[in-house]
Each structure stands twice: as structure tokens, then as C-alpha cells.
Design a protein around this nucleic acid. Structure first.
Lengths: 337, 337
DNA sequence: TTGTATGCGTTATCAG
DNA sequence: CTGATAACGCATACAA
């Protein structure tokens, strides 16, 4: 790779002249300018990004820090594409960092690998966040954590989301409802996703208001486990007429009901919290509270970009929940089959 | 951020001593070593990655270059996680670059942003590949292109894959088969995905061998368009007893058949080429030729890592196709309904 | 065993 | 209008 010196030599000028000829920050005589341009052409020169970054103490890149196995592929994918598009529109690059220790994440920032990071799938006591807290490095959460003081975050109103889901079922007349919750949500090891607390408040409010009987059943957020959880649930509590679930577990629930010969929504309603994408896939399409992942990601990325540019933002954005009625909910049948 | 000089000053030694104390490439007296370590602790020093990279002319990072809208989220996600895991295991980082012009991709390499790139969703005449060809920069294709001379790639045996799919249906007794093909595959603008040619050879071989009548119908690789294409197909050619499709279009096909009251596989068989993930989601589960995306990605990444380390590899890996029978295929019904 | 000097490629500052 | 020089932070060859 030719350097600026090579170009300078080739054009018979000094390196600084080459530099200024290429980004007109001072006036250059037309003929020298042309000689430089020719030399650049001839040598196929382009400035070294690393050298520039080294001088500027900025890498112009952001990091997306996620657990090795994201809870949902579809969700992760939406976050990723939205984030990548936003960073790239702002002339930054995006690095992906899966399964990093807090120390590694810090190393990323300190070594100028990245100018700031986006933390996703955050938990109540999140070691990554604790490690970042003391440092001056810019970071933004997609999600929440126990102590939000001083943090910048973008989150979704999970409380309202689950309130709406249970409220919708209650208004249709359901009283016995199964609720498939993220595995780990029920322990209190601080490992649980922070938004579980909001979830709890939301569904318990609807529960109180409508006098609902709710059966909880844990599941990992994938199809197979959703399937197993639904089978356990219907075995244990055959009286339920509706099931609430998240993400891919919903697909497993549909499969379980199908294999039992129960029709959705005639024999059992299903409702959940998921991306519109998943909700539109299934047969029948799922009534759900759609997660605005794209919007969350774009907002978070923009906040982070402002931070790395030196702006001192401390904002906690909470995006509202909205129920979308599709095809998977209906009033319960009068007679018990 | 403290520099190596700060540490040196704090410990009362020279910068080089600090350096060697930190990565033992020459002997250090225990006491000096300890002083340095203490200073590092005290100042919370860690070496600047940018400076290191600048000196070494290596960025220790790879780029994954993809179109803005990947053909399939699930596929992209598998590629991404496999690639990220492999790079990170090799102490490299992974950058994501969506929707870049060939010039931008080249700039990435030349500016040492990345040491090498992985190109996915490659087409017959792929401008990205043509731009890379003349350069000395390492790159690996996941997929193929028209002229493969001198290229390193990892691909899947699409010819065999589609041969197997049609052969399977033929052996079950199907003679009239609908084939939903990627939109754009039928034009010859060089924009088509290269693997379409192999696809064509595969299904035409089965067609000849078994005397099949095949109706083609184009669709974008998503659920909605698969749905529409299936409706067009069954409207135009009601005699078909089986449908072959790819990726998410299969889900649309299932939905279309469901809405028409046709049972799968009793009234119509469905078979396709997809990731095992998608095939396991649907009701019924899809008989398919599973795309080994994880293996393809890991292999490609390893090849690229060897290239960026200076090894001169030129390898074209073709992973074999294997049909997995699940629940969506059966012999056609004797009587026409 | 330790210190000094130099270069990586770019850019800003200071001279001319 | 243009050229020389220093500095960014690190790593290494060379000197002591």
C-alpha cells in the first residue's frame, strides 16, 4: 500500500501538500493539485484509516455487545440490521462482540477498538454495566438494569405490554390463563432479565383487576421449549382457555395445541409479546403486543453516536406498548370440552 | 487514558522496560517487574489497540459484507453467529458491513479497517468480487460467482440439493410439481444469485429422469411473497400435487395451502431447501434439504483467517446435500379432489 | 538487565 | 501558496 510519502515523492511535492490537496483545507495551486491527483491515481493511494484513527484517538466504530446465544434470532437480527444501518449512515462501523467478559468489553473501549458500546439483553445485576459504570466510556443499554441512575437506555414498556395482553384476554371472557415465562425469570439470582419485574407488575395488575387465575410455566425462549412448556401447562391445568407467551415460545405453543387437536383460537387463545415478523408467520397469525425492536435499536444507536461525539446525553427512553389483534384470540367456548 | 510513557514515568523506568515487563519477551529483574506492574495497576493502563495495529499493519478484524436486506434473517443470523464465534475464538473481531459499494469494501481493506472480508449472497456477475479480484486483499466467498478462477469459496451443492428434492417427490409418485424460485432467478441480468444455475441443473436432471411436469413461479424469499406465489401457482396449475420452495417462502406456501383448506401432506406435499431451524418451526415440520449454514460459515471464516495470516490458500469447498424427511411429504392422493 | 532511538502514516503547527 | 517538523502510542533494533 502506498503512503502519503510515496504520493508526495511521485508528485514532487511534500506530504503536507498532498494532504491538503486531497481535502482542501488550504489553498493549492491548480497545477500542483493536478499533479497530486495524478500521482494518487497512478499509485492508487488511499489514506490509512488506522493512522488517522491513531491520530484522532477515535475509531469511528461502535460495538454491539451481546450474550453468545441471543434469546431470539429474529430479535437479534432486527437489532443488528437496524444498528448496522444507523452506524453506517453516520459513517461509523459496527463491530459484533458475542460472549465477552466485562473485562474484555472494557478492553475494547480502552484500546480504542470502539468508541462506544451498545449493551443488549441486560440483566438486573449486569456485570457488564457495573464494569462500565465507573469508566468515562460511552455506552447505551437496550433494556434496563436494577440501578438506572446516570445511565442512558432505550427500553420497551413491558409492564403495559403484559397488562394489555392479560387485559385483552380478560375482556374476551377468559379467567384461567397459562403464562409461559422466560426461564430463569422465576429465580432471584439477579441473573434474570430486568424487564421481568415490569412484566410481573403488568400482569399482576390485570390479574387483580379482573380476578384472573394465572398458571406460570418457565421456558427457554425457543420453539422446542415453548412446545414442552405448553404440554406441561395443559397437562397440569387443563382448565385454561388461553396462553400468553413470548417470542419463539409462541410457535411451540401453537405446535403443542395443534398436536393435541385443539384449534386456535376456538379451543384456546394464544397471545404474546413478539416481533411483528414472528406474529405474521404463524398459522393462525398471532395477536400480540409487538416489540418495536427496529425503533429501539435506531434510537439507542443515535444516542450512542451523540455520546461518542462528545455530547453529554443522559436519557432513558421508554417506548409504548400497543396490542395488535390478529387471528389467535377469541372468547372462550362456553361448554368445557 | 494513560500511555506507556505514563507508566514508565510512574515506575521510574523506560517505556521499553514497561513493554517487556508486560509481555516477557526479554528478562526483567523481579523487583523492576513488580514496580511496573504496580504502576500499571495504579494508572489502570492498557495498551492502545490502534497504535498496535498501526505499527503491525494489521487490524485483527474481519468484515462480513452483506446486502442491506439479507435474503433470509434466519440464514443471516446463523452465518453471523457462527462467523462471530469463529473470529472471536481466533482473537479477531468481526465488523458488519451492510449495503456497501464495491469501492467502500475496498476502502475497508486498504484503510486497514479490516484484514479480510467474507462476501455473502454473491451473484453471477458480482461487482464486489470483480473489484476485489485485482487486489492483494484476502477475501472468501460464501457462495459462488460466474468466474471462480483463483477464488476461495465455500458453497453448498445446490445442484444435488434440488435433484434430491425433486427425486424424492418423483419416487413418492408425484408428476405435477410446482417450483417457487427466487425472484430474479429467471432474468438473465447477471444479477441473479450464482447458485441458480446449479439449481437449474439439479431439478432439470430429476425432471428428465422421471418425466416430471414442473411449473415455475418466482417469489421474493419471504413469507408474504411465498404466500402470493403459492396462490398464483395453485390457481394457474391446479393439477400439481407437490410444491418445492426455499427458505421463508415455504412458510408462505403452508399458509396458502392452509387457507385453501388443503392439508399438508395429504392434499399437497411441500419440500424445500432451508435451514433446519425453519424446517422444524412449521406445522407440519418440513421435509427439506437442510442448508449447513453454520458449517459453511465456520469453514469460510477459518479459510479467511488463514489467508490474513499470510498462508496462500486457494480452496473451493463444496458441502454435500442431504435430504431430511420430516412431515410435509407423502404420496399424492389417487383420486383428484 | 535496562535505556535510547527510530519508524509506522497521518495531520496540525509553524516557517518560509 | 508550499515545505519541514513534531506528535499520536507502541514495538523493536541497537547500545550500553
Amino acid at each position: 500500500m502506498p503512503t502519503i510519502k510515496d504520493v508526495a515523492a511521485h508528485a514532487g511535492v511534500s506530504p503536507s501538500t498532498v494532504h491538503y490537496a486531497l481535502n482542501g483545507k488550504r489553498s493549492i495551486s491548480p497545477e500542483v493539485r493536478q499533479r497530486v491527483l495524478d500521482a494518487v491515481q497512478a499509485l492508487d493511494y488511499s489514506a490509512s484509516a488506522v493512522a488517522q484513527r491513531m491520530r484522532e484517538h477515535r475509531s469511528y466504530s461502535l460495538g454491539l455487545v451481546a450474550p453468545e446465544l441471543p434469546a431470539s434470532d429474529a430479535a437479534m437480527m432486527e437489532i443488528l440490521t437496524a444498528t448496522a444501518a444507523t452506524t453506517s449512515a453516520a459513517d461509523h462501523t459496527l463491530g459484533i462482540f458475542l460472549n465477552q467478559t466485562p473485562g474484555q468489553v472494557l478492553g475494547l473501549l480502552r484500546g480504542q477498538y470502539v468508541d462506544g458500546v451498545l449493551l443488549i439483553e441486560t440483566t438486573h445485576h449486569d456485570p457488564r454495566i457495573e464494569a462500565m459504570r465507573a469508566t468515562p466510556h460511552p455506552f447505551v443499554l437496550i433494556g434496563r438494569t436494577g440501578d438506572m441512575s446516570g445511565l442512558t437506555s432505550v427500553d420497551f414498556d413491558f409492564e403495559e405490554a403484559f397488562y394489555l395482553a392479560f387485559d385483552h384476554l380478560a375482556r374476551l371472557g377468559h379467567r384461567d390463563i397459562g403464562f409461559i415465562v422466560p426461564y430463569g425469570a422465576l429465580d432471584d439470582q439477579g441473573e434474570r432479565k430486568e424487564n421481568w419485574y415490569a412484566t410481573l407488575r403488568g400482569f399482576q395488575r390485570a390479574q387483580r383487576e379482573h380476578g384472573l387465575r394465572v398458571e406460570l410455566e418457565p421456558a427457554v425462549l425457543n420453539i422446542e421449549d415453548g412446545h414442552r412448556a405448553a404440554l406441561r401447562l395443559t397437562g397440569r391445568a387443563p382448565q385454561i382457555t388461553a396462553i400468553v407467551a413470548s417470542g419463539h415460545t409462541q410457535v411451540g405453543v401453537l405446535r403443542a395445541l395443534y398436536s393435541q387437536g385443539r384449534r386456535v383460537p376456538d379451543d384456546c387463545s394464544v397471545i404474546g409479546l413478539t416481533t411483528a415478523q414472528i406474529a405474521e408467520w404463524t398459522i393462525p397469525r398471532l395477536t400480540s403486543v409487538d416489540l418495536p425492536l427496529r425503533e429501539m435499536s435506531v434510537t439507542a444507536t443515535e444516542l450512542l453516536l451523540r455520546k461518542v461525539s462528545g455530547e453529554s446525553v443522559t436519557e432513558q427512553v421508554l417506548l409504548p406498548a400497543r396490542l395488535v389483534e390478529r387471528e389467535s384470540t377469541a372468547p372462550p367456548r362456553k361448554e368445557h370440552p
